[in-house]
Design a binder for these strands. Sequence first.
DNA 1: TGTACATCAGTGAACGCGCGTTCACTGATGTAC
DNA 2: TGTACATCAGTGAACGCGCGTTCACTGATGTAC
Lengths: 196, 196
Amino acid sequence: MGEYHHGDLANALLQSARAILNEKGIHGLSLRACAAHAGVSHAAPTYHFKSLGGLLTDLAVIAYDEFTAALQEKYALVSHESPNDRLQKVCQAYVDFALKEPQLFELMFSSSPLDFENVRLKSSAAKAYQQLTGIVHPVFDAKGLNESKREQAEALIWSVVHGYASLIINKQVSHGECTAPSKTTLPDLSLLGDLL
Amino acid sequence: MGEYHHGDLANALLQSARAILNEKGIHGLSLRACAAHAGVSHAAPTYHFKSLGGLLTDLAVIAYDEFTAALQEKYALVSHESPNDRLQKVCQAYVDFALKEPQLFELMFSSSPLDFENVRLKSSAAKAYQQLTGIVHPVFDAKGLNESKREQAEALIWSVVHGYASLIINKQVSHGECTAPSKTTLPDLSLLGDLL
DNA sequence: TGTACATCAGTGAACGCGCGTTCACTGATGTAC
DNA sequence: TGTACATCAGTGAACGCGCGTTCACTGATGTAC
């Protein structure tokens, strides 16, 4: 409305981007669309963001930080339980986040538009990873695995929870039925223990 | 070259789409780009494909079929081994396919541009899933799980291998380091058995 | 406290680009007789 | 076997659209004196 000096346009644009992302998906996003949603001229964003990729990178930083916080919060809530139970519940929190913010989750792990050279993004993504592996550690310690085995096991745990989340939200977002797990509750991981 | 009646333009366009996908990624794809790559006027594709989504859906069908064939071939090769060994090796074939055709793999599991109402796509995707679960079956039978447990276990197995592949190729395509497993060889799944 | 001025953070018109789509057209192919 | 004609499968010019980017501009804000 002709208001000069918005005050915090950078953040307003990030909020707008998030809203558009949730409404129309990643392909509905453009700098012009964000500007329009924020009620600002379409040339305004260039002052704050070099490109759409830059804006999305900043949005991904926010996403990773919220993601890390969600895992951390869950972990704190179940601090009195056994290592394996804690692991199960934090993994469920991972899946819950993906279900609550499917578009944001997809953005976090979509390669194309993000600038992974960005220092802040690198840092936030690394923190999320550390948060997850930190949670798996007590389980390993209880079993006494060596360094190499531990890294492999970390990768497998991360893979199972990430894969489950990915398959579910892909299914939610697109198809109706054909494939993919249908339960939003991650099965008990000990099932794999029985099996393998 | 002014050649009228190409003969098999539909397939030529699919090949072109695949080449462009591998070169420039999914965002470099457009009907015009495919037409240009196939050496044909930019209006020609409309005769064969309603939209870019339609073309990509057909490409995804090809991808799913190749994927299924790859798993099947591996499975046949290791038919003399134990159920668990066969499972491990077919899972590795899953990862190998994702590494060999990262862009195609991403397309197969990317929701947005594909038409999952398409009958052929549904069918090909379902076959791929059946191929995978069929391979897990002998392992379950050896352990005597009931129906419900078996479905859950199938989902978990699929998740771990899909997650591993996704995380690796995301890392390959985009970032350099920050997160994600770095080995292209899937760790021994029995590790999870020891752990959970 | 008031005035002058530099700087900040917007506006809105204009540009070129690649996109999908439409359209009148035309060369190649297949079929009827 | 040859000719007439319908149909198929392309061409290339044109259109409108949304995009990012540039540009001269201008209102709001902060600072110096």
